[in-house]
């Protein structure tokens, strides 16, 4: 057959695409289960790491260990709406992106009726962690936008619903070595002991370029070379904590 004819070219292209597409589809379906399991395990590990119950490096069967730790320490999880009322539902599988979009919409709309409806429709997960001394901490997820993609993380608060007990952050595609440093303990560790309320107003936590004195209860150091990511973290905390504000206010001591 003439290799330069149009028919040959078309048939060749069509055949190639079918072969490649089926190969990719098979790979995608075949690998779906381990991939989804990785994601669920990672989420559990994230929640546990927030309160310093991360994984010991000598643990060989990482996945089983995480599952067991999660079942042991996370004693309760539930959903609250924007008014701090508890709702029925599965907190673990809430998609924070959708909730983040709602929080954004509340921020942008001026129509009071719409805001009330949106606030009521919020499904915000709360995880309750009980440490070895039976003290309770509340862990909440946060979600926002960085430079190249979404950012997310978890914040653990003491039972005064004000002081930060622990935090971790992660990202989809921030620049390695720069913005991606938000995922390190060095950055997240700075949040410990900071307070999200100033008097009775929720101020969240400021990320300050050029550094803050260690005594500042409401600010942490930004990442050099990661300005937009740092700003993204600040905004993420501001927005998401605002969503939980009513819940905090109700429980705050």
């Amino acid at each position: 057959m003439n290799r330069n004819s149009n028919t040959y070219t078309f048939l060749y292209a069509a055949g190639l695409v079918v072969v490649v597409a089926s190969a990719l589809a098979i790979a995608s379906i075949g690998l779906k289960e381990p991939q989804e399991k990785n994601i669920a395990i990672e989420k559990k590990l994230n929640i546990l790491s927030t309160v310093g119950k991360g994984i010991a490096s000598n643990e060989t069967d990482k996945n089983t260990y995480i599952e067991a730790q999660y079942d042991k320490y996370i004693v309760e999880s539930f959903i609250v709406d924007g008014n701090g009322e508890r709702k029925e539902g599965d907190a673990f599988h809430i998609n924070m992106k959708e909730e983040y979009d709602k929080i954004k919409a509340i921020k942008q709309t001026l129509d009071e009726e719409k805001r009330v409806a949106l606030r009521k429709s919020l499904d915000l997960p709360v995880f309750i962690y009980k440490d070895d001394d039976a003290r309770l901490k509340c862990i909440i997820p946060v979600y926002g936008a960085g430079l190249w993609g979404p950012l997310w993380g978890y914040l653990a608060l003491n039972d005064d619903f004000n002081t930060v007990y622990g935090a971790i952050f992660d990202h989809k595609g921030e620049t390695p070595g720069l913005g991606a440093e938000i995922a390190t303990q060095a950055f997240a560790g700075q949040f410990v002991g900071k307070q999200i309320f100033e008097g009775h107003t929720l101020t969240a936590i400021k990320i300050v370029k050029g550094g803050v004195p260690k005594t500042d209860l409401h600010g942490v150091d930004a990442i050099s070379g990661g300005t937009i990511t740092s700003r993204g973290v600040e905004e993420m905390l501001q927005d998401c904590l605002n969503g939980y504000n009513a819940f905090f206010a109700k429980n705050k001591k």
Partner: peptide
């Protein structure tokens, strides 16, 4: 030996 020259890069 089978790739049509005109769509070589695409293939």
């Amino acid at each position: 030996n089978t790739i049509p020259n005109r769509i070589r890069i695409i293939v």
